[in-house]
């Protein structure tokens, strides 16, 4: 892809982020989703991982960069929405929103696929699947998966990220 096309793609994604009230600081994350990789913001000094984009609680902005993460975690807590707050969710309820604790530590709010709402449970191991969304963004959804106990993938610096 030439530079011009890259720039246009980036601007389209930024516009999509702004349209849904998202944070432009998270642009690399959404670019990653489009490319099929789950990125987290990480401090190279202490290896703490963050999501959404943050400054490190200890090292500020000194060494923050986006790294590829495992995309795996466990359901930490969840809710099942039965009440449709907007017309858009009227035909979707009931649906579960899970807070996934990623292997690297941060929480990620998402939905769980391939899993009836009454089988979502705390500690359920899950892994990310990238799915296109009507907003124009590609969203990580999660499906029941395997978690290697205790393993935290160190994460590598993505070229260009």
């Amino acid at each position: 892809m030439d530079k011009q096309a890259q720039l246009e793609k980036r601007n389209a994604l930024l516009a999509a982020i702004r349209k849904v009230g998202g944070d432009p600081a998270d642009l690399p994350f959404w670019e990653g989703c489009e490319a099929g990789v789950f990125l987290l913001h990480r401090c190279a000094k202490c290896e703490r991982h963050y999501w959404p984009a943050s400054r490190c609680v200890e090292h500020g902005d000194e060494a923050m960069h986006w790294v590829e993460a495992s995309g795996r975690g466990r359901v930490y807590t969840y809710t099942v929405l039965h009440h449709a707050y907007t017309p858009a969710t009227r035909d979707k309820v009931p649906f579960a929103i899970a807070v996934v604790q990623l292997e690297e530590g941060p929480f990620y709010h998402s939905t769980v696929l391939e899993c009836a709402v009454d089988t979502v449970a705390v500690d359920l191991p899950v892994e990310a699947v990238m799915m296109p969304h009507e907003s124009g963004l590609t969203l990580p959804l999660f499906r029941p998966g395997r978690v290697r106990p205790g393993r935290v993938r160190p994460g590598r610096v993505r070229p260009g990220a």
């Binding site: 944070d23 959404p52 998402s110």
Partner: peptide, 12 residues
């Protein structure tokens, strides 16, 4: 709105 979680239908 709760930032990105609203994309998944998190409201209220």
């Amino acid at each position: 709105g709760y930032g990105y979680p609203t994309l998944y239908g998190l409201l209220g």
